[in-house]
Design a protein around this nucleic acid. Structure first.
Lengths: 353, 353
DNA sequence: CTGAAAGCGCTTACAG
DNA sequence: CTGAAAGCGCTTACAG
């Protein structure tokens, strides 16, 4: 079936295609009477303007790309939704890209975004972007459209960056927990592929550096595979013999922490009495675990607001800020409670964390 | 900056734009020598073909839309990834739409898909699609491109449908659990807005119908808000006084079940000794909870395979099957274990469920 | 194997 | 406020 175009609408309405186009685009250079008539015809014929033709003629798309490290991580889903809400409110649209933590997929998506001539791209990932092929793709992308990166600053970036200071957040959190319990730590999950996990480890290391005897007996585990529930579980179970050396397990994300929690339970170790556990990201389910999990939380809306401002200013062709840094806060729940024995479970209202 | 086009490539390579286009599209009507030369120029100038121009001229996009009820639910994320993998392997691309469980967003996205002249749309949701405005959008969409719906069959559907038989799955599961523990049930989460939750309740109801005395003392809770961790928690806490009446809490999704689990723990009720708990969806984290959560599992790949076949056949313009039905299986973990006292936690290897 | 030229469906500067 | 016409950057039927 041949689909309906502006020509069909123009003929049916007895006007020119220029007028149809003006109605479609909300131009005020159309009389109310003409506009109403044209809209009626559009509605009646079920006309939907061809976005390719429109974008081609205009020389740009009205869509902003949102690429995130993984849509299976709740923080990124919140970010996508907040950005979509804000972008839609400005009359533009969004295209979502799930990078699946894969540099191959990242490169595929950046090429796709270039072909689509998107209005701009917001890229949010903690995975390293400095591999040669990824870096080249990013620079090519930034040469085609405004780009904003959320999560990490690259030395050779020509684009604005918004991120959390995870070194400071980790150091502050580790410091606070070491004050409470002066014991060695097990750090779970730095990775050569993840920029953020490096930052998080670095912060913890700094806190331990001020306590050399604890640093000596602490362990930093590097993970090369996925950092998910199974890995958190496996890593803890495989270290069953040495766990009593530590006072805290510090995980680079909440998934690892949840897996660790399960493993500790199976091993008969109590949380927080024997070992405290803390994660990163503060996903929604943490208050509902038993024990509820503490985590380092980062405000989605603050980041989304900055990214949106940067991309809009960039689209307008104006100069954009270079870098914006946000801070995280620690959210204490049962897994880092300072207690010798568990209080009555209902007392804390932990589910309202 | 004016971006590079086929004309620039043609001039630089000393060929016509027709030849450049043939190289871009992998036509075999180009000599190897010419092809290599043109590709070199494309690479050197960093040329990226304008998708709008290409789509406009071809009259179609090579992108398939994938719209899911919510990207915060892991099953849908798996579906998206499996579909993307398969679509990419066929040389096409995907566009992801997150419906956020909102009919308004669904309508926005279907209109957007029509404007983009997508090659086809795969829509996966358990939310009701029979409201007048949603239904009209779907029929308009199906009039514009091949459509496949995953999750529910509508009587007036003109498109193929793939779904799980959740009535049968719920009935079988409830039956099995009632055999083990002949006690009334608390069913959590049917909703006027969710087709799937209706199906799931219906299956449970049928299993109870064969046991009238249990049916009489069972309770079916309708939820109008979100069906998330907080709701599962709140609903159980607010029924603290009556919980001992029940032998099982049957939840329409895993999120509710997790919230319920936490609430039961706070109330001092043991799972599964006092109450069994089962969810729906079998998300990855369930084996790592304490106790690990039982759930009804559905195979993503089988559904994705059928949906992909249907959309591809539809794009080819050939007749497509009407309906394909898949079955779910129950995955037993600690929360439905038949036991009087908890065995040693390490015994079961639950984390490998 | 290659090129000249038409045309996909819109939008917009220009003229009235 | 409205219309005639050019043109966005590709692809493809046609001719050679």
């Amino acid at each position: 079936m041949k689909s309906i175009g502006v020509i069909d609408i123009a003929r049916e309405a007895g006007v020119s295609t220029a007028t149809v186009s003006r109605v479609l685009n909300g131009s005020d250079r159309v009389s109310d009477r003409t506009r109403a008539h044209v809209l009626e015809v559009i509605e009646r014929l079920g006309f939907s303007p061809n976005a390719s033709a429109s974008n081609l003629r205009r020389g740009r798309s009205d869509a902003i790309g949102i690429a995130v490290a993984s849509i299976s991580q709740p923080w990124y889903v919140k970010l996508i939704r907040e950005l979509r809400r804000a972008v839609t409110a400005r009359g533009m649209t969004t295209v979502v890209y799930d990078l699946e933590h894969s540099s191959r997929v990242l490169i595929e998506h950046t090429e796709s975004a270039r072909r689509l001539r998107l209005a701009g791209m917001i890229l949010a990932t903690g995975d390293r972007l400095d591999a040669a092929n990824v870096n080249a793709s990013l620079h090519r992308l930034a040469g085609s459209m405004p780009l904003v990166v959320i999560g990490q600053h690259l030395d050779d970036a020509t684009w604005p960056t918004v991120y959390f200071d995870d070194v400071a957040a980790s150091e502050a959190a580790a410091d606070e927990l070491l004050e409470r319990r002066s014991r060695p730590m097990l750090f779970l999950g730095s990775s050569a592929r993840s920029f953020l996990s490096d930052q998080r480890r670095e912060g913890v290391r700094r806190a331990l550096e001020a306590r050399p005897n604890l640093l000596r007996d602490s362990t930093f585990i590097q993970l090369d595979g996925p950092m998910d529930f199974a890995t958190g579980y496996d890593e803890v179970v495989s270290r069953a013999d040495e766990l009593r050396r530590y006072g805290l397990i510090f995980c680079v994300n909440d998934e690892l922490a949840l897996g660790a929690l399960r493993a500790l339970g199976e091993l008969g170790l109590r949380v927080p009495e024997d070992l405290m556990v803390i994660g990163y990201g503060d996903v929604d389910m943490l208050p509902y675990l038993t024990p509820s999990l503490s985590s380092l939380s980062g405000d989605v809306n603050a980041i989304a607001g900055d990214a949106l401002e940067a991309i809009m200013v960039g689209i307008a062709g104006e100069p954009v800020f270079d870098t914006r840094v946000h801070s995280r806060r620690i959210v204490h729940r049962e897994s880092t409670e300072d207690r010798a024995a568990r209080p009555p479970a209902t007392a804390e209202g932990a589910a309202r964390g």
